[in-house]
Simulated scan of single mutants.
Amino acid sequence: MRTHRALGRLCALLVLAAAAGVASAQAPLQDLSSFPVLAGPPLPDGAWGGVPTVVVFWSVDCAYCKRHNARIAQLQAAVDPQRLRVLGVLEGGDVDAARQEVARRGWQFPVVIDDGRLRPRFTPRRMVPMTCLLLADGRLHQCIPGEMSEADVMELAQTRWAGPAR
């Protein structure tokens, strides 16, 4: 009887966790207008629909993030923005130092400042850098923790998820 009750609670927790995951994965970038823009071009109003998007969570205090973002900037420069977009999300650290870092390195992708509401839409993992891939319809495809090699970053432009919207 005790095992049956425990199993029932476990199933209920799994259903709740799955529902929360589905809710957060449906459209993580529905509206970015409430997040302050740190750098880069202005963000479109409303959803970022119709184009696959690479979202990178990073911190100005993270050496891995700086190398990773340099590779992400190469990806962004090499790919047509109608086929693939890039968004940086600053987490923690000095905002002025981050703004200077973006300008010094010449990163052209938009960067927003996360106030703690954006990351949970993608993943509960707190690691930086964290690279998340969104399908053209805005659904979360995958989150990749840690620094990626140049070859792996550039391969993001070739993968099937980054194809034209259907």
Rank of each mutant, 00 (worst) to 15 (best):
V153D: 08
L118C: 01
M1N: 12
Q100L: 08
L7I: 03
L43T: 12
Q30M: 03
C62P: 08
W58Y: 14
A98Q: 09
A6K: 15
F35T: 03
N69H: 03
V22Y: 04
G21R: 13
R160L: 05
C143K: 14
L16G: 09
A17H: 06
A136G: 14
K66D: 13
A70N: 14
D115W: 00
I113F: 01
L118I: 01
G8R: 13
D137M: 03
L135D: 11
P28W: 08
P41V: 12
S24Y: 07
R9I: 10
G92W: 01
L156K: 07
G138S: 11
A25L: 06
V79R: 10
A18L: 14
R126A: 13
A98L: 03
I113R: 10
P145Q: 04
A157W: 11
P41F: 00
L87N: 05
N69Q: 10
L134N: 07
V56E: 12
Y64G: 02
A162I: 04
L38Q: 13
A70E: 15
R166Y: 02
L75I: 12
G106K: 02
C11Q: 12
R125H: 09
L118T: 03
F35Y: 15
G163F: 02
V60D: 05
T3G: 05
R67C: 00
A97R: 02
Q76H: 15
L43A: 09
V55P: 07
G49E: 15
L156C: 04
V102H: 01
R71F: 13
F57K: 04
D45S: 14
D137Q: 09
P120R: 08
R104T: 12
P52I: 01
R126H: 06
L29E: 10
G21K: 10
L32M: 15
E101A: 09
P124M: 11
A78K: 08
L13V: 07
R119W: 11
W107K: 07
A47D: 15
R5Q: 12
C11E: 13
A73H: 08
G46I: 01
Q74G: 04
G116P: 07
G93M: 03
G93Q: 06
E147S: 10
S59L: 03
L32H: 10
G163T: 02
P129F: 05
V56F: 01
Q142M: 07
P41C: 00
L140C: 10
G50D: 09
D45C: 01
V95T: 14
S149N: 04
A19Y: 04
A12L: 15
A19P: 09
V79G: 01
R71W: 12
G88P: 05
V95A: 11
M1D: 11
P110F: 05
F109K: 01
I113Y: 09
D45Y: 02
L10Y: 10
C11R: 13
C65F: 02
L14P: 00
R99C: 01
S34E: 11
T159M: 14
W161G: 06
V95P: 05
A12W: 08
G93K: 06
R121G: 01
R105T: 00
L135E: 10
G21M: 11
A162G: 07
A157T: 06
R5I: 14
M130I: 03
R5E: 14
V86M: 03
